[in-house]
Simulated scan of single mutants.
Amino acid sequence: MPVYTVHAPAATDASVVATDRFTFVRDGFHIWAALLGPLWLAWHRLWLALIGWIVAVAAIEVAMARLGTGRGAMFFADVLIALLMGFEAASLQRWTLSRRNWRQLDIVVADDEEAAERRFFDRWTAKQRGLSNDQSAVDRGGPPPTRDVAGQPFSKPPSTPQSEIIGLFPQPGALP
């Protein structure tokens, strides 16, 4: 199943008003990025990545031409660059979003983008409703609250351990 990362602009507070601007980026191989690298980069408005791709390909082509490599080696280098572009296309999208101060909200696993949106918004709206119910005052890590009621042994708080040692030996340096 494909994995999607969900991104939102940092300028907003990720409220219900800004949900139309959320972006889902699919992780994995992008066939169109591999076949039509510069067009795919321009279509997704990844301008710095496009400039970097043009400079890198031109430098590799010029270096290989000056070294006198054959057409087969140049074709092989172009295929490797295309494969690299296909595999790293999602990373370039995420890099551009983070450079534009977008933040990653979640990671969703789904069959397609529509299912990913449905899963994300189900979780996200449940979390938004949970924020309205203020549970921040509840201490979930401490022992349960007790009342020291005279004559009831169950209500006495647990005693603190006498030594700091935890393990098989009750006293430091003692052997069994």
Rank of each mutant, 00 (worst) to 15 (best):
5 T>F: 04
9 P>Q: 09
12 T>R: 03
17 V>H: 06
17 V>I: 10
20 D>P: 02
22 F>N: 06
22 F>H: 15
25 V>G: 02
27 D>S: 13
31 I>H: 11
31 I>Q: 15
33 A>N: 06
35 L>W: 12
40 W>C: 01
42 A>T: 02
42 A>F: 08
43 W>T: 06
45 R>F: 06
46 L>R: 05
49 A>S: 15
57 V>L: 09
61 E>Y: 07
62 V>T: 12
67 L>H: 09
72 G>I: 09
85 M>E: 03
89 A>L: 02
90 A>S: 15
92 L>D: 04
93 Q>S: 03
98 S>G: 07
98 S>R: 15
98 S>Q: 11
101 N>W: 10
101 N>Q: 14
103 R>H: 14
104 Q>P: 00
106 D>H: 09
109 V>H: 07
110 A>T: 04
111 D>F: 07
117 E>I: 04
117 E>V: 05
118 R>N: 03
118 R>A: 13
121 F>W: 10
121 F>E: 03
124 W>M: 08
129 R>K: 13
130 G>N: 13
134 D>H: 10
135 Q>N: 13
137 A>H: 14
139 D>Y: 02
140 R>M: 12
142 G>V: 05
142 G>H: 11
146 T>A: 12
147 R>Y: 08
148 D>V: 07
149 V>Q: 10
150 A>T: 07
152 Q>S: 05
155 S>Y: 06
159 S>L: 13
159 S>F: 02
159 S>M: 07
161 P>F: 05
165 I>W: 15
165 I>K: 11
165 I>A: 12
167 G>T: 09
168 L>V: 11
169 F>H: 11
171 Q>S: 08
